[in-house]
Computed example of a mutant assay.
Amino acid sequence: MSNLSQLLNEDTRPAVAADLATFADATVAEQSGISGIALKGAIATAKKLDSNIITKGVNRLLPEILGELERHWQDFQDAPTEDFGDFLAGRSSQVVDSVMSVADRNAEQITIAPLAKAYNGLRGKGAKFIEPAIPEFGRILQKHMA
Rank of each mutant, 00 (worst) to 15 (best):
P114R: 09
T111I: 08
V96A: 15
D97M: 04
L88Y: 09
Q94M: 10
T111V: 11
S92K: 15
D86E: 15
A103G: 04
P114D: 10
F84Q: 07
D83L: 06
I110K: 00
V96C: 13
Q94E: 15
N106R: 14
S98G: 15
V102Y: 03
G85H: 08
K117D: 11
S93H: 12
A118I: 03
R123V: 02
R123A: 13
K117N: 11
R91W: 09
E82P: 00
I112E: 04
D97C: 01
T111C: 00
K117Y: 07
N120T: 06
S93D: 15
D104F: 04
Q109N: 12
Y119I: 04
A116F: 04
S98F: 04
V99Y: 01
L115Y: 05
S98T: 01
A103C: 04
D104L: 07
E82F: 03
R105T: 12
E82M: 07
G126T: 00
K125S: 14
S98W: 01
Q94R: 12
G121P: 02
I110S: 00
Q94G: 10
R91N: 15
S98Y: 05
L122H: 03
A127E: 15
D104P: 01
A116D: 11
V99H: 02
G121F: 02
G124F: 08
N106L: 02
G126H: 02
R105G: 11
F87K: 05
E108T: 11
K128V: 13
G85D: 09
A118K: 05
D104R: 14
M100A: 02
S92P: 07
A116I: 03
A89R: 13
E108H: 06
G124Y: 07
L88C: 12
M100N: 06
V102H: 05
D83H: 11
L115C: 06
R91L: 11
T81E: 12
G90H: 06
G90L: 05
E108R: 12
D104C: 04
A118N: 08
V95P: 07
R105S: 15
A127Q: 13
K117M: 11
K125D: 08
N120S: 10
V96T: 14
L122S: 03
L88H: 08
E82C: 03
G85R: 09
I110C: 00
D104T: 13
V102R: 07
D86R: 11
K125A: 15
V95A: 09
Q94C: 05
G85F: 09
Y119V: 06
N120P: 00
V99C: 02
M100Q: 09
G124D: 08
G121M: 03
G90E: 12
L122A: 04
D86P: 00
T81G: 06
G90N: 12
F87T: 09
